[in-house]
Amino acid sequence: MNRTDSGPGQAARTGIRYLVLAAVSLLLVGPVLWMVSASFKSLNEILVFPPTILPTQFRWDNYARIFELQPFGRQFGNSLLVMAAVCILTVVLSLPAGYALARVQPVASSIIFVVLLSGIFLPPEATIIPLFLLASKLGWINTLWPLIIFTAVLTTTPIATFIMRQAFLTLPPEFDEAATIDGAGRMRTMLQISTPLVRPSLASVVVISCWYSWNQFLEPLVYIRDVNLLTVPVALTRFTDTYGQPLWNVQMAATTVSVLPVLLVFFFAQRHVVAGLAAGGLKA
């Protein structure tokens, strides 16, 4: 929204805006900074009151211990693997479904849409018990399968389908007609003509499904026992000494490590991510 006002009132307003923005940023970034600071502290210093802002002595040792206490590299790999698999599966399932709902609209597609839409609201907590039993029957306990299949099919695909449907709906109707008249097959029309136009939405499907699977906590908590198969979020809660007492400083170090790559990618690609998303990617 452009404003054309000017003068001292405008300056005051700008000041207030900066103040609000700074306060919000502090609330959002402050904890992350505190986490990084705590990751260098000794256990004692983390617990000292009043708290220190910066560590009195930087303990890099905390970072070395992450990898001694748990196969953290491997757990990171598990997380990446699950994320990639969920992401691919979601795209493969939701792109055609969204296209069908928006542009092909076979008989009763609106009912199908409602059914899928209910999936958006089906919380994993409501289905975790039977899925857990299903996974034990299938021999999937202590494998990454349930994290991939159940999540993609039940959780990410419905919302992704919704996004894709909305995206395809925004294309003018002549689009596929013209293509069909030109002799392109239906499948080809979908993939080569329509799909490129909804790339931003496709990107947001990728982002959302990656984001969801990267954050999964309940599922690995329930399905995975082997420490070598854990994904990062649950692994973060497992940094304890040999008697089960949490090592908070190492935990914070591991948390920092888990966040760092994502943050780095974000800061390098920041302009593209924000601009890309803002350019219409997440337009509903």
């Binding site: 698999a85 494998t143 990454l144």
Partner: peptide, 18 residues
């Protein structure tokens, strides 16, 4: 597509050695 995903999954399952 499913096969590709399945392969990813299989990779994952390999490490479970139940």
């Amino acid at each position: 597509g499913a096969v590709a995903v399945a392969m990813l999954g299989a990779l994952a399952a390999c490490s479970s050695e139940s």
